[in-house]
Simulated scan of single mutants.
Amino acid sequence: MVACGLRPEGYAELPKAKKAEHLRFNDVRGTAVTLLAEAGTAIPQICAVTGHTLQSATRILEKYLAMTPALSKAAILAFENSPATAFANRLQTAAPNSKEGL
């Protein structure tokens, strides 16, 4: 950020009020997109909050959202707990030769 002129030298040491002078509304809004996605919010819902288009929010996430183990675990947990996947989950956890999963 310093190299491209968005943050001055010594930015990390500045008091909070001085740091705020270097923030733009779009910085905060873009950060909100990323934080909402990390919290498991769907892109259409993110757009409803931030006012971005689907295309714009997707571009922000493609650029800034880190694919972390926490996101992977959250996705699997959501899949396993979704009513839409309950039947498949019962099939996988049923005892062999059992009709419980059917």
Score class of each variant (00 low, 15 high):
residue 28 V to C: 13
residue 56 S to V: 09
residue 27 D to A: 06
residue 28 V to D: 00
residue 24 R to S: 14
residue 47 C to S: 01
residue 27 D to V: 07
residue 29 R to I: 07
residue 40 G to W: 10
residue 58 T to Q: 10
residue 44 P to L: 03
residue 27 D to Q: 06
residue 25 F to C: 11
residue 48 A to T: 02
residue 23 L to C: 15
residue 33 V to T: 13
residue 28 V to E: 12
residue 50 T to Q: 03
residue 33 V to Q: 04
residue 36 L to G: 05
residue 47 C to N: 00
residue 51 G to R: 02
residue 41 T to A: 13
residue 49 V to D: 07
residue 39 A to Y: 08
residue 26 N to W: 07
residue 41 T to H: 13
residue 22 H to L: 11
residue 26 N to T: 12
residue 47 C to T: 07
residue 27 D to I: 07
residue 46 I to R: 00
residue 58 T to L: 06
residue 26 N to S: 13
residue 32 A to L: 14
residue 59 R to A: 08
residue 32 A to W: 04
residue 53 T to R: 01
residue 24 R to T: 15
residue 25 F to I: 11
residue 51 G to A: 03
residue 28 V to I: 15
residue 50 T to P: 01
residue 45 Q to G: 09
residue 38 E to P: 03
residue 35 L to R: 14
residue 24 R to C: 13
residue 35 L to K: 15
residue 58 T to N: 06
residue 50 T to M: 00
residue 34 T to L: 08
residue 39 A to D: 15
residue 44 P to W: 01
residue 37 A to G: 09
residue 44 P to A: 04
residue 46 I to D: 00
residue 32 A to N: 07
residue 30 G to A: 10
residue 22 H to W: 12
residue 49 V to W: 04
residue 23 L to Q: 15
residue 42 A to I: 08
residue 22 H to V: 05
residue 36 L to Y: 06
residue 45 Q to L: 12
residue 39 A to K: 11
residue 46 I to S: 00
residue 28 V to A: 13
residue 41 T to W: 13
residue 33 V to C: 14
residue 47 C to L: 01
residue 30 G to L: 08
residue 24 R to A: 15
residue 29 R to A: 06
residue 35 L to N: 10
residue 48 A to E: 14
residue 25 F to E: 15
residue 37 A to Y: 12
residue 23 L to Y: 14
residue 30 G to N: 12
residue 44 P to S: 03
residue 42 A to V: 08
residue 29 R to M: 11
residue 50 T to G: 01
residue 33 V to G: 04
residue 56 S to D: 12
residue 34 T to F: 05
residue 56 S to A: 10
residue 54 L to Q: 08
residue 32 A to I: 12
residue 59 R to P: 02
residue 35 L to W: 10
residue 27 D to E: 11
residue 51 G to C: 00
residue 55 Q to W: 00
residue 53 T to V: 06
residue 26 N to V: 12
residue 23 L to G: 05
residue 23 L to F: 15
residue 31 T to K: 10
residue 30 G to C: 09
residue 42 A to H: 12
residue 45 Q to F: 04
residue 31 T to F: 10
residue 29 R to E: 05
residue 35 L to E: 05
residue 43 I to D: 05
residue 51 G to L: 02
residue 25 F to V: 13
residue 53 T to F: 01
residue 31 T to V: 09
residue 27 D to N: 08
residue 50 T to I: 03
residue 40 G to H: 09
residue 36 L to R: 04
residue 42 A to F: 01
residue 33 V to K: 06
residue 40 G to I: 01
residue 28 V to L: 14
residue 22 H to N: 10
residue 59 R to T: 05
residue 35 L to Q: 10
residue 29 R to P: 02
residue 22 H to K: 15
residue 31 T to N: 11
residue 37 A to H: 12
residue 33 V to A: 14
residue 36 L to M: 13
residue 42 A to K: 11
residue 32 A to T: 14
residue 47 C to W: 01
residue 22 H to M: 13
residue 43 I to R: 08
residue 58 T to C: 02
residue 45 Q to S: 15
residue 44 P to C: 03
residue 50 T to N: 02
residue 29 R to H: 08
residue 40 G to V: 03
residue 60 I to G: 01
residue 39 A to R: 13
residue 52 H to W: 08
residue 59 R to S: 06
residue 36 L to T: 04
residue 25 F to Y: 13
residue 60 I to K: 07
residue 46 I to C: 03
residue 33 V to Y: 02
residue 39 A to S: 14
residue 58 T to E: 08
residue 42 A to R: 12
residue 56 S to M: 09
residue 28 V to G: 03
residue 46 I to G: 00
residue 51 G to N: 04
